[in-house]
Design a protein around this nucleic acid. Structure first.
Lengths: 290, 290
DNA sequence: AGAATTGTGTTACAAAAAGAACAGAAGTCG
DNA sequence: CGACTTCTGTTCTTTTTGTAACACAATTCT
């Protein structure tokens, strides 16, 4: 779909010669801060350009619109699609597959999710979360749900290497009391909870909260009820053309957290990592990358 | 120029808790394609969000505006100043974070990885892989390594719902013989192996191959040695500005596979899913999404 | 389980905006 | 220089749009 139809800005510039003095004056005013000014009421636009209201109406008709409202609608549409793909013009991600192929549709959705999610994250929140998660003086507990426990485990596997005192709390609630016994004020819980939100997880969060633990929550755009208890909350868009939700954006955030706390704890980590690698090598479980 | 007054998007985000169900629904609809939708007439916005017009009016008042027109005016003002600032040219993902922030650097890298990886995938291979993985007449075995076993489990959790005869082979090699005993010719192994490639995994692949099983391999750009035995091989770019590798692209592929086999097995799956959901509901482990 | 509170949609009204008709101003051509 | 054409602004009408008041539904609390 080569949807490169000319933008309204283009159309105005092309017609600039056919316009009269007052209309041209108006046109320049529109282009001055495009497209914001064109989205206001007709009268405002007219006043800003020092022309009369009918002049505006006449011009947009000259441009081929039925009336000012239609002009605005198309402007909004343009803005919409502009916001949709500031990314590369990748209609197709997997070359050779039709754009309707699930590979392309799915990837589109994920990229979109990433953009939306990242756009709503407060960097300060993020840094604060990393500060908590990476702080070796706070015990770290990681909790996930039925599906999200894979994310929890992913974080756990890495955090374990980077710092000490990391626990992955499995979903079976039998084992909770054991873990919770040792929780101190200021300890950190990282909780994953996407729809459909699990009562289990909420209960655990409540207990942790009651003990004075800090809670960092990774949830979806509708936000788990846990977010009322959370000190920091990241909500990811998870909708994809699938019967299931996507965890890709969540994973992206988790990996970024891992990168950040790795950096922040480099001094200690370096040592820990090396010792761990040694252990792996000795047990011959993992082969060095060659 | 630290004129970083909170954007309206921020304000909505902030007040999200104080909003009611319908209002939240509306809020999400606004954020969905921001700011375009907020610049249209109130009624349109209401219809898009499936709420009534007064709900819109009430919400904007809750956000601190005198009325919808004032809300729109500020939105336009925001758009105006955004267009003015050449910096806002969207080379940052997390707005408000410097482009050197790890959030932006990391996301850049992941998007790049996705683009590269998808560009090299042969859609026919992909379809073939889905055909194998989704075929209920072939037993399905899923295998991962130290880190990648989270990906394996993610696939397992979903595949388990979609079809029968799915097994997640954990990394401890003690249990292998048990599983391998039942492997028949034509069965399918999905193997995850990123650097540093694990001997364990290779051994298992060899045994599976010897038994005549089909092998679908998810690996990284340098390709695990298993790829010599694999019938289909997907290699993802995994490099990110981190001491660790990224599994995000791999997850994207896995999720796409899940979407595809879900689609392909819809008839059976529907039934399976419903029964499973029922079970979950009965056990009260999961709360219905409202 | 019933009552009170809060939230939500339908209806009706008021305000504002866009369009049409007309009259005056500017520019142009004989 | 004057008559014609074209352009532009003012006024008025019609339509659209936002808001207020009300009634019903959902939720919460007792």
């Amino acid at each position: 779909m080569p949807e490169n139809q000319p933008t309204i800005s283009d159309r105005i510039q092309r017609e600039l010669d056919r316009l009269t003095r007052a209309e041209r004056q108006l046109a320049h005013s529109i282009l001055e801060n495009y497209p914001a000014s064109g989205l206001g009421p007709l009268a405002t636009l007219a006043k800003d350009a020092n022309v009369s209201a009918p002049t505006v109406a006449r011009m947009v008709q000259k441009l081929g619109f039925k009336g000012y409202p239609e002009f605005q609608t198309e402007l909004r549409e343009e803005l919409r699609s502009k916001a949709k793909n500031p990314i590369a013009k990748h209609d197709t991600w997997a070359e050779g597959a039709p754009s309707g192929h699930v590979l392309n549709r799915f990837t589109d959705a994920v990229i979109d999710n990433i953009r939306h999610t990242l756009g709503q994250i407060d960097p300060d929140d993020f840094d604060a979360a990393c500060g908590l998660i990476g702080d070796p003086d706070r015990a770290l507990y990681i909790v996930g749900g039925r599906i999200t426990h894979t994310m929890a485990e992913y974080l756990f596997l890495h955090a374990q290497v980077i710092r000490a005192a990391v626990t992955h709390i499995q979903s079976t609630s039998n084992t909770w009391p054991h873990y919770l016994l040792d929780v101190k004020e200021g300890d950190v819980f990282v909780i994953f909870d996407n729809r459909r939100y699990e009562n289990n997880t909420l209960k655990l969060a409540e207990m942790a909260h009651a003990k004075g633990a800090k809670i960092v929550l990774f949830t979806d755009q509708w936000r788990s009820p846990v977010h009322h208890l959370a000190d920091i909350c990241f909500s990811s868009r998870i909708v994809v053309p699938s019967a299931w939700d996507s965890a890709a954006t969540t994973l992206l955030l988790v990996e970024t957290v891992i990168a950040a706390i790795q950096d922040q704890n480099w001094a200690q980590t370096k040592d820990r990592t090396e010792r761990l690698e040694d252990m792996f090598d000795q047990t011959k479980l993992f082969r060095k990358f060659t």
